[in-house]
């Protein structure tokens, strides 16, 4: 029972990281209708920046996080402007390949700048662990911070998209780009803001991910990126609460699968659940059903 609870907590904390990454995927997909494969690598860049900030520039953890967010935000906007904006009218496959090229570019740039050896990520979160049930269940400080961060981000994003003018513009652009433009919405600015938010979230996710799993290499971001993308599809791509639910469920399934079924088959289990969900509900858990017209 106790071990189940502690596995659940680990799953929740890993799932929260997936959820934060998935939010970036889902927002970009909702608005630009593209799979941004480079998103996972933005996470990695964010983690490297905060690593440098602490290790070489001796900044306090909070400032290191801000630095990582700032760099990733700029990076996200630059990537969108240089690589994706010229391809707005192109087929989705062309954009996908460009995003894959961008992902290779980021990974190899990181390889050249920081080298291929694994960097051990410093412990950035100094929150004491909580022990419950008479000291039998210990919840790590990082886990608490990660879950809290995920909840706060989720609430903030929901408020942002439903209450602010920019959020309204985002919803408009995601529904119909042409009509939004006719209503006087600056589509380019809206897409840039979406990429900026997604990339800033990626930086946070990078720091949280590397605090939990402190081995940092240029390919750190790719597998969590793919899993978070799966989480976004799982929850219904384009939907913000969907990304959150999908991410957390995926994390819990992965940890429980690894703990109780098979260590090697943990990832296979995650993908199998995804396939079953998509077969029963082809648009994901919270996705909107789009009717096809002739």
């Amino acid at each position: 029972m106790i071990s189940l609870l502690s596995h659940l907590m680990n799953g929740l904390s890993l799932g929260s990281v997936y959820a934060i990454i998935a939010l970036g995927y889902t927002m970009v997909y909702g608005i630009a209708k593209m799979l941004n494969f480079a998103h996972g690598d933005v996470i990695m860049i964010g983690a490297y920046i905060s690593f440098c900030a602490i290790h070489y520039w001796n900044l306090p953890p909070a400032l290191a996080l801000v630095a990582a967010m700032a760099v990733c935000t700029v990076l996200g906007i630059v990537i969108e402007r240089l690589a994706y904006k010229p391809l707005r009218q192109a087929t989705s496959l062309a954009v996908l390949i460009t995003a894959i090229g961008m992902s290779y570019l980021l990974q190899n740039s990181a390889l050249l700048i920081w080298g291929s050896n694994t960097k051990s990520f410093p412990d950035m979160i100094n929150v004491p662990a909580i022990s419950l049930l008479g000291g039998e269940l210990i919840i790590k400080g990082e886990a608490i911070v990660t879950i809290l961060a995920c909840v706060v981000i989720m609430i903030a994003l929901t408020l942002f998209t439903s209450r602010t003018k920019m959020g309204k513009a985002m919803r408009g652009v995601s529904e119909d780009k042409g009509a939004a433009e006719l209503m006087g919405i600056n589509v380019n600015l809206t897409i840039s803001v979406t990429f900026a938010i997604g990339s800033a979230l990626a930086a946070i996710a990078g720091v949280l991910l590397c605090t939990a799993y402190p081995a940092l290499t240029p390919t750190t971001g790719s597998m969590p990126g793919i899993k978070a993308f799966t989480a976004a599809v799982f929850g219904g791509i384009g939907s913000i609460p969907g990304a959150m639910v999908g991410g957390i469920l995926l994390g819990v399934i992965e940890i429980l699968g690894k703990a109780y079924i098979s260590m090697e088959l943990g990832d296979a289990f995650v993908f199998a659940v995804l396939i079953i969900v998509l077969l029963v509900k082809p648009t994901g858990l919270l996705g909107k059903k789009i009717h096809e017209k002739v």
């Binding site: 391809l87 390949i97 090229g101 290779y104 570019l105």
Partner: peptide, 12 residues
Amino acid sequence: AIVLILVMLATN
């Protein structure tokens, strides 16, 4: 990677 991106941009 750069060749890949440039080819995609040039052709699309």
